[in-house]
Design a protein around this nucleic acid. Structure first.
Lengths: 332, 332
DNA sequence: ACTCGTCGCTAATGCGCATTATCCGAGGAG
DNA sequence: CTCCTCGGATAATGCGCATTAGCGACGAGT
């Protein structure tokens, strides 16, 4: 490959020093450094004519900044399935990155060095970015701890528990919205509710579950829990009149089973889903539940990351979820 | 931010020189350079214990390679609309990038410096990548010429005409598949065919059109052309018994209009679409036509890019499109 | 005993840029 | 006539790494 233009070349052409070119390029009008208008124009002209562009790598090395934001996902960014849970996050991330004038570095190579994606493989390019955004249902604790320990600026999309220190994140406010849904169910006359799902593991699950439990306790109604694999019978056996599904995908399966067994939804049992489908599911059921503000979360993550880069800090934010009335929750 | 670990630090800890660390890291077992097994192990141990990772920017500067592939799109990469034309390309690109162990740099900042995306803005990060993949219906000629002139390794997804030199690309073989569809129509008894679309502008359009014209000429049947805005009446006025639509979206609108006017498709007029919908269109019509191997094109583009990086050259490839029989093309 | 080659390692250099310290000449003050 | 200031530019340095030339020690060959 032909050698590219350097500031040295520009300097030679303009009859000045490399320093001067750098100063002109960076627009330094500081008190300390002075460049006469004529010289400045001369240098600018050469730059324009040659179309010189500074080498980003060298720049990064000398200056320490890049205007590149890394994006790490624990699953493939562009999944083969079209109905994609992560897609909206990325839309938001890209939108905001474009606005703040940053490029996005996707760590696609991460998985190559093993079967599981890890941020820090032997020649990780994380440090090429000024900071990064983490995306994924679950995030490796060690990776998280390492990011914190190494003081690499980052923001997680989705709340994360401490990992050797507080984790900066922008999450969805599951506790609040779940509580609101519980309140709604109680207002509709339900007194015995069941939560279908693990309720632990990922923070997002724990948050839904805690929102459910606290609300149920506060309202003095009965709150039960069954596994996400629970059968139709198992759920009905609880005697609950409304089921809160952690995973929309499970609700879809459940409703199908109910239809086959002539159990009316919501006639015999109301159903609430706690968030969007994480796995592609085809269903046109109008579930009562809420929408995770995924795009907004992506945008906000980038916004927060830029503030972290500028002023530091450990922002932690929960974004409100929009309620969906739906048709699967009725009074009794 | 705390200073990061450097090879110098590792060297100090291991009681060797920075050079030695670098040599160990790069596994140089060359004839020229020798490191004793003990020293090597000692250095490796320190690296392991500290979790040292080489600075990619410095590496790039010194060595000139990065294992980063740039991706430039003239439209937003992650569009807000879910049914996305570009998505499959990206799936392929990501898949292959992961396989070859490269990260992907998305030039999202490109649009920020103006209303239109251009590769070379004042502080472009193109050169941070080893090479790039170009994606977009149309690609700016000047950008293309510049890439060639600057000898920046790249591969275009989609055939491109020369731009101050041959352009490396992986495209879809529109001429061949269009010809096959014309042959099929003729075999079914059609003798008067009409091409609906511009037939020029983007290379992909020109290729479809040329395939159509050549086939029609070779087979000795009548080939007409009307604008893509052509009304139902205009198309019918040509007397053609089958219409080839450049854009599937136009075909959808056309068929709707036909339905309203009681024109039977394909009873009164057969319809062929030349490729997938580039704009999101909701339609469950089973058009006769073909599938653009988008994912495959993405994959192949990355593959070709890596060979360009290693051995140079200007690969140009057309991938076959898969035929769709569909139900809109019948004999007469 | 002296040269020579081999082994194991290091000093030095450069990549392209940003930044700091420095230098030079022209006035102006004393 | 000297000293000082100040505008205008440059030499020098460092960022973290890869690479090349070369250095000291030690053993073999004659």
């Amino acid at each position: 490959m032909a050698r590219r233009l350097t500031q040295q070349d520009i300097a030679r052409m303009a009859g000045v020093s490399q320093t001067t070119v750098s100063l002109v390029l960076n627009n330094r009008a500081d008190s300390e450094v002075r460049i006469s208008p004529e010289t400045r124009q001369r240098v600018l002209r050469v730059i324009r004519e040659t179309g010189y562009i500074a080498d980003p790598a060298a720049r990064r090395l000398a200056e320490g900044r890049n205007r590149i934001l890394g994006v790490f996902t624990y699953e493939a960014v562009f999944p083969a399935t079209s109905a994609d849970f992560y897609h909206p996050f990325l839309v938001g991330i890209e939108e905001c990155a474009e606005e703040v004038g940053c490029d996005l570095l996707l760590f696609t190579s991460a998985r190559a060095s093993g079967n599981k994606r890890r941020i820090f493989n032997e020649d990780s390019r994380v440090r090429l970015a000024d900071g990064c955004v983490l995306l994924g249902r679950t995030v490796d604790r060690d990776d998280l701890a390492r990011l914190i320990a190494d003081q690499i600026p980052f923001v997680s999309v989705g709340r994360r528990d401490d990992a050797g220190g507080p984790v900066p994140y922008v999450g969805a406010d599951y506790p609040t919205v779940t509580r609101v849904l519980v309140e709604r169910a109680v207002r509709l006359g339900h007194r015995r509710l069941v939560y279908v799902g693990a309720g632990e593991g990922a923070e997002s699950w724990a948050d839904r579950h805690s929102g459910f439990r606290v609300a149920v306790a506060d309202l003095g109604v009965e709150g039960l829990q069954v596994d996400r694999q629970a059968s139709l019978d198992a759920v009905r056996a609880t005697g609950a009149t409304v089921a809160f599904f952690e995973e929309q995908a499970d609700a879809v399966v459940f409703v199908q089973a109910a239809a086959e067994r002539a159990v009316a939804i919501p006639g015999d049992l109301s159903v609430v889903t706690l968030g969007s489908a994480t796995r592609p599911v085809h269903s046109d059921i109008d579930f009562a539940g809420f929408v995770i503000p995924r795009r907004e979360m992506g945008r906000r993550a980038v916004e927060l990351l830029t503030t972290v880069l500028e002023t530091g800090g450990t922002p932690q934010e929960l974004l409100p979820c929009e309620l969906i009335d739906g048709s699967t929750l009725i009074g009794r």
